[in-house]
C-alpha cells in the first residue's frame, strides 16, 4: 500500500515540475511544437530505460494488440481538450473540472474493472473520500489566489 502511494505521489511531483517546464517551453515554441517535443523526449527516455532494464526484451512485442499502437492518441486528445477548456473557461475553473473528472473516472474504472483492471468493489467510503477531495480542490482553486500563479499550472502538454 505505502509503496503504491509513494510512487503515485512521486508521479504527481514530476507532473507538477513537467507542467512548469512545459509552460516555459510553450512561451517560445507554441503549444503543438511543445507537445511534439515533450512526447519525443518522453519516447527517447522510455526507450533508453527499456534498453537498460529490459535489454533485448524491449523489442519483444508479440503480445501487442492492434489498439495499443493507438493509445498514444489519447494523450493528444488530452492536450486538445485541456487547451480548449482553458481558452473558454480560464485556468481556474477549467483545471478544477478536469481534476474532478480525473477522480470521478478513477472511481468508475475501479468499480467496473474495465480494461483488465482488478475490479475493486464499489464502496461508499471511496465515494465519500472522492467527494471530500473534490471539495478540497475547489477550496484550493477558488480560495483567493492570484491569477499569475494559476496560469503556470494550466496548459499541461504531456498530460
Amino acid at each position: 500500500m505505502l509503496i503504491g502511494l509513494l510512487l503515485a505521489a512521486f508521479a504527481g511531483m514530476m507532473v507538477a515540475l513537467q507542467t512548469i517546464f512545459n509552460n516555459r517551453t510553450d512561451v517560445h515554441m507554441g503549444s503543438w511544437a511543445t507537445t511534439t517535443w515533450v512526447l519525443f523526449m518522453g519516447f527517447v527516455a522510455s526507450l533508453a530505460c527499456s534498453l537498460i532494464f529490459e535489454g533485448s526484451r524491449t523489442f519483444n512485442l508479440q503480445q501487442m494488440q492492434p489498439w495499443y499502437w493507438f493509445s498514444g492518441l489519447i494523450g493528444v486528445g488530452v492536450v486538445i481538450c485541456l487547451v480548449l477548456g482553458i481558452k473558454i473557461l480560464g485556468p481556474t475553473f477549467s483545471v478544477s473540472v478536469t481534476l474532478t473528472a480525473q477522480l470521478g473516472f478513477a472511481l468508475l474504472f475501479d468499480s467496473l474493472g474495465w480494461l483488465g483492471l482488478e475490479k475493486v468493489a464499489f464502496d461508499w467510503k471511496q465515494l465519500a473520500g472522492v467527494v471530500v477531495i473534490v471539495a478540497g480542490i475547489y477550496v484550493f482553486k477558488f480560495g483567493g489566489k492570484k491569477k499569475s500563479a494559476e496560469a503556470v499550472q494550466s496548459a499541461s502538454a504531456a498530460n
Binding site: 503515485a8 504527481g12 507538477a16 475501479d110 480542490i137 484550493f140
Partner: peptide, 17 residues
C-alpha cells in the same frame, strides 16, 4: 488501484505546484 493512485498523484501535484 486507480482511485488511490489518482488521489495521491493529484495531492502531490497540487502541493508541489
Amino acid at each position: 488501484g486507480v482511485t488511490f493512485t489518482i488521489s495521491a498523484l493529484l495531492i502531490a501535484q497540487l502541493l508541489v505546484t
